[in-house]
């Protein structure tokens, strides 16, 4: 009986350990699934997916723009972040948490498979942003760093 209890305890501990270690990582980005979820659960007219990495200086410089965008357009815009950092671990998760991003952050391993699988025309440049306009069902892909004005202008021009 004691043996059985010990075994159960060990199994439960292992399961908790595994669950805990997963919780220490960012969720893996699944483009189709997350876009569909965002469309279903949110009335936002613009869904922005922003690909960045914490090692990428222009990416980090651009991040405050998304705070402003979120403040200005909370009702209309949903922003999702995708980190292409080298390792998805608790250090990355902590780093991302400290950034206080105005949206969920996922992880995508930056290797060749993302180029093969991606449905957009990405040339490998970071930051990279995809703006999806739900009313017109169209999207725009933007490589490199952009300003708040750039994004606002694109929204005005593409929402109708």
């Amino acid at each position: 009986m004691r043996n059985l209890k010990s075994t159960v305890f060990l199994v439960l501990s292992s399961v908790l350990l595994v669950l805990n270690s997963h919780a220490q990582n960012l969720p893996i980005w699944q483009q189709e699934k997350e876009l569909a979820t965002a469309l279903k659960s949110n009335s936002a007219r613009v869904i922005m997916t922003h690909y960045f990495a914490t090692w990428c200086k222009p990416c980090m410089e651009e991040l405050p723009v998304f705070d402003s965008l979120n403040q200005l357009n909370k009702e209309n815009v949903l922003i999702q972040f995708v980190s292409l950092d080298l390792k998805n671990n608790r250090h990355l998760k902590k780093k991302i948490q400290r950034l206080n991003l105005p949206g969920n952050c996922f992880y995508l391993e930056p290797n060749a498979s993302i180029m093969k699988d991606s449905s957009f025309n990405w040339d490998g440049t970071l930051p990279f942003t995809v703006m999806y306009f739900s009313t017109t069902e169209t999207s725009i892909e933007l490589a490199g760093k952009h300003t708040l004005q750039d994004y606002l202008k694109l929204m005005n021009n593409n929402e109708n």
């Binding site: 090692w55 990428c56 200086k57 222009p58 292409l84 930056p110 180029m115 990405w122 040339d123 490998g124 440049t125 970071l126 490199g144």
Partner: peptide
């Protein structure tokens, strides 16, 4: 081919 990396500004 496509290359991932840090942009040269």
């Amino acid at each position: 081919t496509i290359t991932i990396g840090c942009q040269i500004y």
